[in-house]
C-alpha cells in the first residue's frame, strides 16, 4: 500500500515536472530573433570547426608514416611509430662505427705488412740507420736515374 502511494507520488511529480518542461519548451521557441541568429552563427562556427577537425585527422592519418620516418611528428603518436623513427639514427651510428673499425684494421694491416717486409728482407733493419749504407743507397738511386 505504501509502495503504491510512493509510486503514485512519483508519477504525479513526474507529470508536474513534464508539464513545467512543456511550458519551458514553448518559451524557448519564442527566443528573440537576434538570439536565434547568434545561436545559428555559433552552430555554423562549430560545424566549421568540425570540418577543420576532419581535415586535420585525415591529413595526420595519411602523413603519419612519412613523419615517423623523418623522426619528427606529434607526441600523440604511439610507441611503435616513435621506435620506427629511431631506425635511421641507429643505422647512421652503426655505419660510423663500422667505418671506424674497418679503417683501424686497414692501418694495422698496412703496418704489419711493412714490418713483415722489413723483417723478412735479407738486409737487417739496423742497416737503415748506418750512414754508409744510406750513402750507398743514394748513390745507387742517382745511378739508376742516370741510366
Amino acid at each position: 500500500m505504501k509502495t503504491m502511494s510512493v509510486t503514485a507520488n512519483l508519477s504525479a511529480q513526474d507529470r508536474y515536472g513534464r508539464q513545467l518542461a512543456a511550458y519551458l519548451d514553448a518559451s524557448a521557441q519564442q527566443l528573440p530573433h537576434d538570439i536565434s541568429e547568434r545561436l545559428r552563427v555559433a552552430r555554423q562556427q562549430a560545424l566549421g570547426k568540425y570540418r577543420e577537425v576532419q581535415i586535420r585527422e585525415t591529413a595526420s592519418t595519411s602523413l603519419g608514416g612519412g613523419v615517423a620516418a623523418l623522426g619528427g611528428g606529434e607526441d600523440e603518436r604511439g610507441l611503435w611509430p616513435r621506435l620506427v623513427s629511431l631506425i635511421p639514427l641507429l643505422a647512421l651510428i652503426a655505419g660510423l662505427v663500422t667505418i671506424q673499425m674497418v679503417g683501424t684494421e686497414q692501418i694495422a694491416e698496412e703496418l704489419a705488412e711493412l714490418d713483415a717486409a722489413i723483417l723478412t728482407d735479407d738486409l737487417p733493419p739496423d742497416a737503415y740507420s748506418d750512414p754508409g749504407f744510406a750513402q750507398f743507397l743514394k748513390a745507387r738511386i742517382d745511378q739508376l736515374r742516370q741510366d
Partner: peptide
C-alpha cells in the same frame, strides 16, 4: 556525420541557451 551533428545542435541550442 556533419548533417547529424548539425541537426543535433539545432535541436538543442535554444534549450541550452535558456538553461
Amino acid at each position: 556525420t556533419e548533417q547529424e551533428l548539425s541537426e543535433f545542435l539545432k535541436s538543442v541550442e535554444k534549450r541550452a541557451f535558456k538553461r
